[in-house]
Design a binder for these strands. Sequence first.
RNA 1: GCGACCGUAGCUUAAGGGUAAAGCACCGGACUGUGGCUCCGGGUAUUGGGAGUUCAAAUCUCCCCGGUUGCCCCA
Length: 439
Amino acid sequence: MTLSRKPLKGMRELTPGEKRIEDYVIKRLREAGVAYGFEEYETPVLEPLELFLAKSGSELAVKQSYNFTDKGGRKLIMRPELTPSLARMVAASGELIYPVKWMSFPVCYRYERPQRGRVREFVQFNLDILGVSGLEAELEVFLVLRRIMSSLGASRGQYVIRYSSRKLASGILESCGITEEEMAQAYAVIDKKDKIKPDEWEELVRKTIKDERNADTIIKFASCSDPDVPWLSEAAGGSEAFDEIVRFSGMLKDAGILEAQFDASVVRGLDYYTGIVFEVMDTGGKNRRAICGGGRYDNLVGMFGGQKVTGVGFGLGLLTLDLFLETYDLMPEGISGKHPADIFLAVYSDGERAFAVNFAEKLRDVGISVEIDITGKNLSKQLKIADRKSIGYIVVIGPEEVVSGRITLRNMTSGIETECEVSEVSGILIDRNLCGEAN
RNA sequence: GCGACCGUAGCUUAAGGGUAAAGCACCGGACUGUGGCUCCGGGUAUUGGGAGUUCAAAUCUCCCCGGUUGCCCCA
C-alpha cells in the first residue's frame, strides 16, 4: 500500500515558489497596516466551539467548520474566522490603549467543498479598529483597503468597495412590517441580487417573501445604488441609520475614495454586524467572490461581560486576492523563481573544499546568502545547478584560486566577470545588492 | 449535501476495440577549469480503483475514488 501523494482535500500546501508569492502579498498587506499604525497579534487556531456558536451564526460554526470533541470531552473548533477570538482577547485585556488598531494573518478552516476561490485551509488578513464608535474608524479602514489595492498594482475600475448599512436595512425591513423570522430570509435574498439575473432575482424575491408589498419594498431597497435616491430618503429619512449612511457617503467623497460605492444589496453573512458593512469585489466577471468582507460590530466585545467596546474590521482572503492579482496580471515578474542565495560557490575538487567552506562562512557572517556545492559533481554540472536555481553570481574555487587568493566573480545574468581578491567579494556583492532593486 | 465536466509517465498531451506513444522535466554520459546550446543513452505507467461486456479494453457499460467548477455558505 503506497501512501497518498496528495494533502487532504482543500488543505494548504505551498512550494517555495508559491510561498514567495504569498510572502510578497503578505509584505504589502503588512506595510499597508503599518502605514496607519496597526500592530500585529495572534490568537489560537483551536477554540471552544461555543465562541463561534453565539457569534458567527450556526451555519458557519457547525455546518461549515471543522469541529470535534477532544480527549477531555471538550467541544472544539478549528477557527473558521478570527473576529470572535479578537473580541475575546480585547475583552480580557485590561490595559489597552484605545483606539486599538490590530492586524493579523490567521490560518482559518472551513469544512466545505473546494472550488474557485474557496479551499478548506486558508490564510486571511484581518484588520480591526476597536473603541471608536464614529465613522472615522470606517473611513480609515476604507483608506487601508484602497492603499492595499493600489500598492499591489490594482487600478481604480478593477475593483470596487461596496458598502451598505445593516442598521439601515433592518430599519427599512422592520418599518414595513417584515417579521423577525422573515428577516434572515430577507437578508439572504437581498444578498443574492448581484449573483443572478435581475428578472430572476425579482422572481426569487416574490417567491421568498410572500407579502407582495414587502417584496416590492425589498426590491426597491436592494436596488438603491446611492443613499440619496428619493425613494430611500422617503422611506428612511430622519432615521439615525439614514443620516449615518448619508454622512459616511459624504466623508468618502471628501476623502476622494472614489472606488467606494453605496449598494444596498450588500449584506454580509456574519450575524454580529451592527452598522456599516462592506466588501471588496473584482469588477470583472471572472472572480465573483468578495476579496474582502467586513463591517462594524459594536456588541461583540460586550458579550464577554465587562464594558462595551465598539469595533470595525475586515477579513481579506489571500486566495481571493491572488486570483484577482492573477486575473489582472499584477504579480511581479519572476517573483516565484527568485532564489534566496546571492552567490554560488563551485568547488573544483575536494582539495579546495575546506578553503571554499571557510570562504562561504566569512560571506555569511556579513549577511550574504551563499550556496556552496555539496554534490561533488563536475564543474559543468555544478554551474548548471546554479544557473537553474537563478543564483545571481558564481565563483569557482579551484587550486589556482587557493594559491593566488584571487577569484573571478561572474554575474550570471550579464555574463560579466570581475577578477578580485577573495577579501573583496563581500564588499562588491553588498554594494551591488544595495544598488539593485529591493523587494 | 446536490449538479456538471474531467482522470493515460513528474508535467502537457497522443493512441477512440488489436505491441501504451511523444514533447518537456528528470537521471547518466560526451565533460574534473566554467551555466543557458548541442549530441548520445535511460521510460520512470497496475492508463485513478474495482467489476462487467469481449478472443482482445486506455478505448464500451456500471459502481467507487479523486480533481475542476457551479449551488448551499462564505475570506
